[in-house]
C-alpha cells in the first residue's frame, strides 16, 4: 500500500520539512538518552500541594512547565520518561521484527518446497488478522510483562520483512554473485549474511521506517487501553489514557504526550520517505 507517496510529495514541495523532521527525531533521541538528567523531578514524585497545576502556556508556573496531574506529579518529567520507554519499545520491537522476519525470508527462499509453503501460510495468516486483536489476546492472557510486550511488538510486522527478504533473496539467488560465492565454497551463513544481506539491506531499512511508527502507534494504543505498559512504568500511551480521565479539568495531561506521538510518527514517516528516495529508487 503506497501510504507514503503523499509524504514524499509533501517533502518535495518543502524540503526544510525533512530537516525539521530529522531535528525532531534527534531531539527525541537526546531526550531518551538524557531522560535522567532532563527530568526536573522523579516521574513518580507526588506533590500534593501542586495538584492539577496548568502548564506555563496556560498561565501556570515554571515549577511545573508542562503542568502537573491529579497527584501533583510533574507532567514534563513523566513525559521525558515516557518518551524513553516508548522509543525503546518501538526500537527493540522493530529490530526483532526485522531480524526475525528477514531470517524467515532467507529460510523460505533457501529451502523452498514445504518449508516455504509453511512460512508463506504463516505470513498470510498474520496478514489476514488485525494484529491489535492478536496482541490483546496474547498480552492479557500471558500477563503484563515488559519483555513479553516487547517481543509481541516484534511480532507485529515480521511478515513484511519476511515477504521482502524472500522475494529479494529468490532474485539474488538467480544472479551471479550468490552462485559465485557459493562455488567458492562459502557457507550458507556467509552467503546470506555477508553477500545477500548487504544487497537487500536498503529495502529492509526503508521498511523499518514504515514499521517503526506503526510500532509506536500499536504500543501507545495498547497502553492507552491499559493493557500495555503497566504502572509504575509510564509510556506515551499510558499518559494519554490517564489524561483522558481529566480531559475537562486538565487537558494538558493528555495533550503533550499526544503531540509527541503525532510529531514523532510524522517525522519518522517524512524521514523514511527521504531515505527511500536516497536508498531505494525502485520503491517509488
Amino acid at each position: 500500500m503506497d501510504v507514503k507517496g503523499g509524504v514524499r510529495r509533501f517533502f518535495e514541495a518543502s524540503p526544510p520539512l525533512t530537516l525539521l523532521a530529522l531535528a525532531w527525531i534527534a531531539f527525541m533521541v537526546i531526550v531518551a538518552f538524557g531522560a535522567d538528567f532532563l527530568a526536573p523531578y522523579s516521574f513518580t514524585a507526588l506533590d500534593l500541594r501542586a495538584r492539577l497545576h496548568p502548564p506555563v502556556f496556560m498561565g501556570g508556573k515554571w515549577a511545573h512547565a508542562l503542568g502537573s496531574d491529579e497527584l501533583g506529579r510533574d507532567v514534563l518529567s513523566r513525559l521525558v520518561m515516557s518518551i524513553r520507554l516508548s522509543l525503546l519499545i518501538a526500537f527493540f520491537g522493530t529490530m526483532i521484527a526485522a531480524a526475525f522476519g528477514t531470517a524467515m525470508g532467507f529460510v523460505a527462499a533457501h529451502f523452498r518446497g514445504k518449508v516455504e509453503a509453511v512460512i508463506l501460510m504463516l505470513i498470510d495468516f498474520q496478514a489476514s488478522m488485525p494484529f491489535l486483536i492478536i496482541a490483546l489476546a496474547v498480552l492479557a492472557f500471558f500477563g503484563n510483562n515488559l519483555v513479553l510486550f516487547v517481543m509481541l511488538m516484534g511480532l507485529n510486522s515480521w511478515e513484511r520483512y519476511a515477504r521482502i527478504a524472500r522475494g529479494l533473496t529468490l532474485s539474488a539467488n538467480e544472479q551471479g554473485y550468490a552462485a559465485a560465492v557459493r562455488q567458492l565454497g562459502a557457507s550458507n551463513l556467509r552467503v546470506y549474511g555477508l553477500h545477500v544481506l548487504p544487497n537487500i539491506a536498503s529495502t529492509l531499512i526503508v521498511s523499518m521506517t514504515i514499521t517503526f511508527p506503526e510500532t509506536i502507534l500499536l504500543e501507545s494504543g495498547l497502553s492507552f487501553l491499559g493493557l500495555g505498559v503497566q504502572p509504575p512504568l509510564t509510556s506515551l500511551g499510558n499518559m494519554v489514557g490517564y489524561g483522558r480521565e481529566y480531559l475537562t479539568r486538565a487537558p494538558w495531561i493528555m495533550l503533550s504526550p499526544a503531540a509527541v506521538i503525532v510529531l514523532s510518527t510524522l517525522s519518522i514517516s517524512i524521514v523514511g520517505d527521504w531515505l527511500r528516495d536516497r536508498l531505494d529508487p525502485t520503491l517509488r
Binding site: P213, S220, G221, F224, V240, R244, A258, V262
Partner: peptide, 9 residues
C-alpha cells in the same frame, strides 16, 4: 500518523 484515540479525545 494521528492515532485514533488521540483524534477521538
Amino acid at each position: 500518523t494521528v492515532p485514533s484515540f488521540v483524534l477521538a479525545l
